[in-house]
Amino acid sequence: MREGVARVGRLLRYIVIRGLLIIPTILILYTLIFILLRVIPGNPILSALGTHYVPPEILQEKMHRLGLDKPLYVQYFDYLWNILHGNFGESMVIEGRSISKDLAYRIPATIELTIAGFTVSVLLGLITGTLAALRRGSKIDYSMRVYGIVAYTLFIPWLGSLFILLFSVYLGWLPAGGRLDPSITLKRITGIYTLDAILTGNPAAFFNALKHLILPALTLGIVLSGAYTRLVRSNLSDILQADFIRAYRSRGLPETKVLKYALRNAMIPIVTYMGLQLAILLGGAVLTETTFSWPGLGSYLFEKIQYRDYSAIQGTIMVFAFMVGLVSLIVDIIYALIDPRIRY
């Protein structure tokens, strides 16, 4: 019992230390983006407005309103201070529009899509990789290897367009875009629609939201699964040759149990990889959202890039940076929990 308490204490300490370690990562990205967006030649407002001339007093007023007339180092700390308080400033293009509000509205959509896509990719990767590892050197193994390479090279909007063509245009089974039909009403609680539908006991909304989620999640999931296929295949087939697997068999454990324990061992490097994969997952989500008009951070970024709304672009990127930091922390914690050899 006492040992259990000490263990929890050590784990908490580990989480805090790991949490502190993501601060420099976020600061570096913040600095990089700041330099990039603020130190560029030319006036961002002019290029945002897409014009070469704005009356000087109006420009001056606008610069002041956005805080762009202050010295750079003041801007640097001001903005940092503000985003740490959840204030991402005001749009450069649409006067008075709060970026924080826009982002808050769109973050749950991206979270819903990435979680669904992630789940699809891990499931597909585990199934294909396990099939390959169990029949190493067979035709199945060969086709799974090809799948692993090809899936990774698929261009997301292309795969998405094939799905839209097949399931929406020709078969008419699934919607081609959006998150919910306009005719459906759903009370917004978390902003993750499937979850909100469950929380409010609204099956019609749940199935409608799920229908909208299927194609984007499949698209994102398939492209990301290729890497898992390869990883599961190589790790699992190494583990299946391990001495302790032979020892399990020699004690009369059934093959299902042997495979279960082999997978548990193979999962350890795969969990580490999930952290690295996160960047690819979020990047893939940006393209998936744009393809399926999914109103998340990615399609927001797409819109703002078209309008050159630099303050909104900067805000979106900082949100991505925070998400990367947070999830890599979560992955570290899971890793510490599943591998008894990790000391914390």
Partner: peptide, 22 residues
């Protein structure tokens, strides 16, 4: 399978790798 570990058992060469590490 029922005989393995019950009527006939085996001990292997390398104890460092013959136990499941997790």
């Amino acid at each position: 399978r029922e005989l393995r570990g019950k009527s006939i058992s085996m001990v292997f060469q390398d104890p460092m790798t013959s136990l499941d590490p997790v």
